[in-house]
Design a protein around this nucleic acid. Sequence first.
DNA 1: CCTTGAACCTGTAGTAACTACAGACACTAT
DNA 2: ATAGTGTCTGTAGTTACTACAGGTTCAAGG
Lengths: 138, 138
Amino acid sequence: MAFEITDAPITRGVLAKKANCHIETVRYYENIGLLLPPSRTEGGHRLYKIDDQRRLRFILRCRELGFNIDELRSLFSIVDTNTYTCGEIKSLSTDHLKSVRDKIKDLKRLEKTLSGILKNCTGGEIPECPIIDSLWAD
Amino acid sequence: MAFEITDAPITRGVLAKKANCHIETVRYYENIGLLLPPSRTEGGHRLYKIDDQRRLRFILRCRELGFNIDELRSLFSIVDTNTYTCGEIKSLSTDHLKSVRDKIKDLKRLEKTLSGILKNCTGGEIPECPIIDSLWAD
DNA sequence: CCTTGAACCTGTAGTAACTACAGACACTAT
DNA sequence: ATAGTGTCTGTAGTTACTACAGGTTCAAGG
């Protein structure tokens, strides 16, 4: 996620392109309060300054790390006070890491079951299938 | 997923309890066409016979294996003709298995990044944090 | 200065897979 | 007959966006 931040204020479309995200997503993040309302032109078009750009990048990076909107809200509620401690952030991130690991565990179990069933499958033209059989059976 | 199928037709609530799923989910599956409309009492209450029960169980088992509604629809469109072949089912399931494996790969990459960042974290009372720093940094 | 076309504005609806009502009716037991 | 639970319907809420429609603003060219 290279994301050059420019000194001069930029419009929503330019920001979105720079951030490689959908233009509507930018507005969405403002609507739900993750992005702060930016300044505007006389005509009402949004203008994103350095801090706005940085904040969007922060959000997108967190999303890439799998943080959901609620976790991001928590992160901001800590960070925006400017009195956050390393411990607070670590605790949040550790929780998140755990949920990621849980998801991996679940998917692995699922993968095992699925490939186990698939092994019994000949894949031929015959009008029956051990997969279906095992799913219908009592 | 033990799921005794009873000879006598049962109501939606009883079915849901037996299947260990939410009562509204049963209606939902009917609304979207996965469950076939069951017979009714004179008063209009649904009555689920053996085949209905089996079909719900099939759906729930597929959902447990991570198949989404669309994949289930495809499965049924094959199975409901009663002329399905093992090959058709295998192909669908193999695709699904691949998407599961892709998800695992994504999550593992994510886990690695996340735990990498977390390692640099002291977690103390200091008012700064390498996690935040790395997310804000250019 | 005027026009044109792209970019932007707003509000709203759609996506997946449910879950959660509200207000009315059916069923069961006493 | 009545009380209390179970079901009925349609609709709205959830997550994290995405996709319009109908209107306005902006930047560039003449």
